[in-house]
């Protein structure tokens, strides 16, 4: 069977189809929505892309918390634009996910019922303005490390969405670092805000790169499909190696007494991560899990009459057009 035929066939998965599919991925070909794909590939992609989309829109909440209180007009506008970018990312990612044959309503339903997850980092509170800097610098920094490899992932719509997302995220990361730098170079009070934010966000940011390789259930398959190119531990090391010198540069202290440059490995050694905390937050017991999910559910429920109105109006307009045409 030629590849063209494989693309067009709706046949049930068979060994040969799957083998040819694997070969296409191995050749770095993109899989497009109408191509044949194993059911597991489709499901895994729905899970990962939707989780990513949900993270974008839930991620709007902790930062949105400071838009009305931003300290200057320049920062207010930049933060508002940043949070709007996250909404935009959510939109492309939901659209990419919809190409796999699931509707936006079903995806929201999964989020609202807790069936689908989002990045646990957003269950931490933003307590001061410096948290906005820390999120940009650390959380977006960790996100980029996770996401850059996805720009060449095998599923075409996801890879293309990620190219745009990554460009914007790297802008956000620089913006966050610049907020931290301004604070670190500011008055003693401002420096204290910056250090306090780094203290609270450092460990959750390391956890954001996912459980250790030994505990990670999806790594092997995801590597094969190029949903992952490096393991969680490799990504985490990359993040630490990249971020520690940045903290040094602005005179902030990373809150890890065991952190030390290792001349032999050419990497930083670091202390133990509190994985109990990680799993507690994943299971719903973080400081803001309930608030975040309620905010999404409330926005959706309160918006129902608005969406219904838009739908009813569009139908009326359509009917009028038809009547006129007749």
């Amino acid at each position: 069977m030629s590849e063209k035929e494989i693309k067009n066939t709706g046949a049930e998965p068979s060994r040969s189809l799957e083998e040819l599919f694997d070969q296409r991925i191995a050749r770095d070909e993109k899989i497009e929505p109408k191509d044949w794909m194993p059911e597991k590939y489709r499901k895994t992609h729905i899970r990962q892309i939707s989780q990513h989309a949900h993270s974008e829109i839930v991620g709007m909440l902790p930062e949105g918390n400071w838009i009305s209180r931003a300290p200057s007009m320049r920062r207010k506008v930049a933060l508002l634009a940043k949070v709007q970018d996250e909404a935009g990312h959510g939109l492309y990612l939901y659209s990419a996910c919809e190409t796999l044959g699931i509707s936006r309503e079903e995806l929201y339903e999964q989020l609202h019922t807790g069936k689908a997850k989002y990045s646990s980092i957003f269950n931490y509170p933003t307590l001061t303005w410096a948290d906005i800097g820390a999120i940009g610098w650390l959380v977006d920094g960790a996100a980029i490390i996770n996401q850059v490899p996805l720009c060449s992932t095998s599923y075409g719509p996801y890879a293309r969405a990620m190219i745009r997302v990554c460009k914007e995220e790297s802008f956000h990361q620089r913006q966050g670092f610049e907020i931290m730098m301004t604070l670190a170079n500011g008055t003693p009070e401002q420096k204290e805000l910056a250090q306090d934010a780094l203290n609270r966000w450092w460990w959750p940011s390391l956890m954001m790169l996912g459980p250790t390789d030994a505990e990670s259930v999806h790594t092997e398959q995801s590597m094969k499909w190029k949903l992952k190119r490096k393991t969680n531990d490799e990504l985490r090391q990359q993040f630490i190696d990249q971020t520690v010198p940045q903290a040094d540069l602005i005179g902030l202290t990373v809150p890890d007494p065991d952190l030390k440059w290792n001349e032999e490995t050419k990497h930083y050694d670091f202390g133990d991560i509190d994985w109990d905390e990680f799993w507690q937050v994943v299971k719903g017991h973080g400081p803001c899990n309930k608030e975040r999910l309620s905010a999404r559910v409330d926005a959706w429920n309160e918006g129902e009459w608005v969406r219904d109105a838009a739908m009813a109006y569009a139908e009326k307009q359509q009917d009028n057009k038809i009547k006129k045409a007749i």
Binding site: I57, M60, L61, G64, I67, L80, V83, Q84, A87, G88, G90, L91, Y94, A295, D298, A299, W300, E302, G303, E304, V306, R307
Partner: peptide, 11 residues
Amino acid sequence: CGHGPNLETDI
């Protein structure tokens, strides 16, 4: 921001 009736309206 973040609380609109749908993403498009929010944006």
